[in-house]
């Protein structure tokens, strides 16, 4: 028994869940127990959106040092506009709208990798430059866009089963799929192999370019999906709808125990990290602190959590 506990605490993702539990307990203690369940429901509904992009970002980060997708916020913004415009408030067009939003995201991923590969630009700069373009497209495409999502779609993003958002359940299943993909498929193993040593992976016959391309496309597609769902949940598209997901997507990946040096991904940690971030904000809101204090504490707590959780990783040679 105690061995099992020790083994559990050796897992890199456990700290994100411990952190999430702590901030939840702190918030519940403050309110004297009222709204504990509601807090969890709200946290789950919001965490889902971070998990979706977090998973995409996790695959990208696992590709190795310097790999990160900075175009996610712009991608999410554009996809939210594409989804709302396509659906046009009509329940029959929900599927088409979702497909086109994901398609837009996939397009963004393709452009990202084209820039990385053809121009040999570091991914940070490539995805950053791409995001400038996407932002402009979004601004001119989505100008004055005030289309509400179809009722069916808005309801779908808000359905709860016994206090658990349906979307959270779907994404949980999807997360399991991502876990299987990472650990049990050639694609997932190739991503890890490239992150550990790109040269060795190439010599071992991994189709490095194809795998990296697929990873950026996957991340882009997930960004697109996230944009459509966010527009449904928040009842409308918005250029800035994805802004907070740049920092959040990177933060949950790392808080969740994925190695920034690449080659070592951690799927459950993305959930832990997302819940931790959302519950942290809930807790600080419950305490009723000012915006400045909230930001200050968020930052300090993130640094503290990383400090406690980190350190076990061997130095990259």
């Amino acid at each position: 028994m105690s061995q099992a506990v020790v083994a559990l605490f050796r897992r890199p993702w456990i700290w994100s869940f411990v952190g999430a539990l702590f901030v939840w307990l702190a918030a519940v203690a403050f309110t004297g127990g009222t709204g504990a369940g509601g807090m969890l429901t709200a946290a789950l509904s919001l965490a889902v959106f971070t998990v979706i992009v977090g998973l995409g970002q996790m695959f990208v980060v696992t590709l190795g040092p310097g790999n990160v997708d900075l175009s996610l916020p712009a991608n999410i913004g554009l996809a939210s506009a594409v989804a709302m415009k396509t659906m046009g408030g009509d329940d029959h067009l929900i599927a088409l709208g979702l497909c086109l939003a994901v398609g837009a995201g996939i397009g963004v991923g393709m452009v990202n990798y084209l820039l990385i590969r053809a121009l040999r630009i570091p991914p940070i700069i490539a995805t950053l430059s791409a995001s400038f373009f996407i932002q402009s497209i979004d601004i001119s495409y989505g100008r004055g866009l005030q289309i509400k999502p179809p009722d069916g779609f808005a309801d779908f993003t808000n359905i709860q089963i016994l206090g658990v958002p349906l979307l959270a359940l779907i994404i949980l299943v999807f997360t399991l799929g991502a876990s299987v993909t990472l650990h049990r498929t050639i694609f997932g193993r190739s991503v890890s192999a490239i992150g550990q040593n790109i040269r060795a992976a190439r010599l071992a016959g991994v189709r490095v370019d194809l795998v990296r391309f697929a990873t950026y496309v996957l991340c882009g597609g997930l960004g697109g999906l996230d944009g459509a769902l966010l527009a449904g949940y928040f009842h409308g598209a918005n250029v800035d709808i994805g802004n907070e997901y740049l920092l959040a997507s990177i933060a949950v990946v790392v808080i969740g125990g994925t190695s920034v040096a690449g080659g070592k991904a951690n799927v459950p940690g993305v959930w832990g990290g997302a819940l931790f971030l959302v519950l942290l904000l809930t807790m600080l809101n419950t305490f009723g602190v000012s915006a400045g204090v909230r930001l200050l504490l968020t930052g300090l707590i993130i640094v503290a959590v990383v400090t406690v959780a980190g350190g076990a990783k061997p130095e990259r040679q």
């Binding site: 920092l247 990177i250 933060a251 920034v260 930001l295 930052g299």
Partner: peptide, 13 residues
């Protein structure tokens, strides 16, 4: 620690 995350946290601070 990964500097990206620490400085990300510091940006909030």
């Amino acid at each position: 620690l990964p500097s990206i995350v620490v400085t990300l946290g510091m940006s909030f601070v």
